[in-house]
């Protein structure tokens, strides 16, 4: 299968040629296929946010290429603009970008920039609002009257309304309470299922990425150090800790149980843990 996004030998240097020169990405290569859910983890300053901005053509690579459906997004102006719409990027704390008088108008900003007709804009706004669980009445209020979590969902809807094939989110749950977090993650999954979209999510929550993603990209000091499914990444716990990252709590507990001599498998999610415990209990009952 052809990858939807392909990154080849991508390097990016901030303030090149000045004393403040700083290498943010160093020769990074990877491929993303349609429908995948990719997690991106890495310590603060490892280049995650820079990488995200490369993928939709906001930053131009110092070296290397970004291919969208096999075509270099920087090869012509029209393609760069297309990439902005086909690869939707939700920044950190996206609620700070809201500006319109009503929620409806703010969500419509992206689709209007795409040059769609009013009917199509209306359909997309309502559909996007549905994905993030905004009600009809909420569409007509000022976004500044909403709560923090609701503002965040409006901002995410603003990107979803462009119906991007690849949706990239930079720490979408940062600073939200547990209920807000699980709602946002649920919204993202709803969009993914409905549109068979590709999702790429930067997160500091090992639990979230272990539970949701198919594949993890681990960045450390401007380099891509791991590119594997979560269960493989989390077997390298010591390396992760050295990079200032960690493994899910439940994995830690089960690693400890194993050390204590219990015959358990490696576990990455709560569901797996529950299954193991049931099996254990059942096994004991038979013995």
């Amino acid at each position: 299968m052809e990858p939807i996004l392909e990154v080849k030998d991508l390097s990016y240097i901030y303030s090149a040629g000045t004393p403040f020169e700083h290498k943010a990405l160093d020769q990074i290569s990877f491929r993303i296929h349609r429908g995948e859910f990719i997690g991106v983890i890495g310590h603060t300053g490892s280049g995650k946010s820079t990488l995200m901005q490369q993928l939709n053509g906001l930053l131009k690579p110092t070296a290397g290429t970004v291919l969208l459906d096999g075509r270099d997004i920087w090869s012509d102006k029209q393609l760069t603009r297309q990439a902005r719409f086909r690869v939707g990027l939700v920044f950190q704390y996206p609620e700070y970008q809201l500006f319109e008088e009503t929620v409806y108008k703010d969500i419509a900003f992206g689709p209007r920039n795409m040059g769609l007709d009013e009917g199509e804009v209306d359909r997309r706004v309502r559909e996007a609002a549905g994905f993030v669980g905004l009600t009809e009445e909420q569409l007509q209020v000022s976004p500044f009257d909403l709560s923090g979590g609701q503002k965040r969902r409006v901002a995410i809807a603003g990107v979803i309304a462009m119906e991007p094939e690849v949706l990239i989110l930079d720490e979408p749950t940062a600073g939200l309470d547990p209920l807000g977090r699980s709602e946002i993650l649920g919204n993202i999954n709803a969009y993914r299922r409905a549109k068979n979209a590709t999702i790429m999510m930067v997160s500091h929550s090992m639990e979230d990425v272990a539970r949701l993603t198919d594949r993890l990209l681990v960045l450390n000091g401007a380099n891509l150090v791991m590119d594997a499914p979560p269960e493989q990444v989390f077997t390298r716990a010591e390396e992760l800790v050295d990079m200032g990252l960690s493994i899910p709590q439940v994995t830690q507990v089960f690693l400890h149980l194993k050390k204590m001599g219990l015959d358990v498998d490696k576990v990455y999610t709560i569901d797996q843990a529950a299954e193991q415990m049931m099996r254990f209990k059942g096994g004991n009952a038979h013995a």
Partner: peptide, 13 residues
Amino acid sequence: DKIMSAQKARGAD
């Protein structure tokens, strides 16, 4: 800078 990038990501020109 940040806000400009965010609006550009929504197709602002």
